[in-house]
């Protein structure tokens, strides 16, 4: 049964327990109409190996939060603690990001794109090529190593993007609406594959999505945010058994959880 762990969103956070903890983080933008509180005093923690979803209306600060967790954007107030140390910039061994498929470098082949994080680190060519080939095989793209992104479909490109994220091999993977540009069928398939790979590697994941079905299907916890100022409304534990399948979606529990999130989002508007 779905148990609402409302207290988690507000309880003081001890960073030892968590791989990643967000502590009283705010992000303000100066705009012509005054200060915009894109993210407002947000706190939460993510335990090792957990798959946490982040949902909320468009513009509620999900992407901003993710950029801060990746060390790509400085918080106006508060800290992001990774492995016990506050983040001051990108830390690629600890935190990786899987962007939408459009972030693949168009002048590199699929394999070169997957190798890229390793190349930046100075990993030897033969070794990284082998790793990339293995990773592409894992996402079902054997034989496509030498294709350029324009020769691949949207779904295939996103697979390459996922392979790149796992090839970088950080402890924590952040994903910002990775499947948003794909059609329904492709995103269902890719969701299943992501779960399969994740179950093999057990990384800590923070997954932003605007699809509630996707959030409930993939995640252990779903954090629901409200817009302007961007705050956490509630954190909902999704205690549906794994492995989850298509049948999971038809269960009453699944529907109840999704309804609950929907009501929260709608109520906040």
């Amino acid at each position: 049964m779905a148990e609402v762990t409302d207290s988690m969103a507000h309880a003081p956070i001890s960073s030892e327990k968590f791989d990643l903890s967000v502590e009283q983080v705010s992000l303000h933008f100066e705009t012509p109409n005054g200060v915009l509180k894109a993210v407002d005093e947000v706190s939460f923690g993510v335990e090792t190996g957990r798959f946490v979803g982040l949902v909320g209306p468009s513009g509620c600060g999900k992407s901003s939060l993710l950029l801060m967790m990746a060390g790509l954007q400085k918080a106006t107030f508060g800290d992001i603690i990774v492995e016990g140390e506050p983040l001051t910039g990108p830390r690629p061994q600890d935190v990786g990001v899987i962007f939408q498929e459009s972030s693949l470098l168009p002048w590199k082949t699929a394999s070169e794109n997957v190798e890229f994080p390793l190349a930046l680190r100075g990993v030897d060519k033969a070794e990284r090529k082998q790793l990339a080939t293995d990773m592409l095989k894992l996402v079902g793209l054997s034989g496509f190593e030498d294709r350029h992104p324009f020769e691949l479909s949207g779904g295939m490109k996103q697979r390459v993007s996922i392979a790149r994220g796992f090839c970088q091999d950080p402890r924590i993977l952040l994903m910002d609406e990775p499947f948003a540009a794909l059609d329904e069928q492709t995103r269902m398939t890719l969701g299943d594959e992501l779960l399969r790979i994740w179950e093999g590697h057990r990384k800590t994941v923070v997954f932003v999505t605007h699809s509630l079905t996707e959030a409930v299907y993939l995640c252990d916890d779903v954090i629901v945010m409200s817009a302007q100022p961007g705050r956490i409304l509630e954190r909902i534990e999704i205690d549906l058994p794994r492995p989850r399948t298509y049948e999971t979606m038809a269960t009453a529990d699944f529907g109840r959880l999704r309804d609950r999130i929907w009501r929260l989002i709608r109520g906040s508007e």
Binding site: L67, A70, G71, L72, P90, R91, P92, Q93, V95, G96, V97, F99, S103, F116, P117, L120, R121, Q168
Partner: peptide, 8 residues
């Protein structure tokens, strides 16, 4: 952004 997140 992607490159920076990978440590470029």
């Amino acid at each position: 952004l992607a490159a920076r997140s990978m440590g470029a």
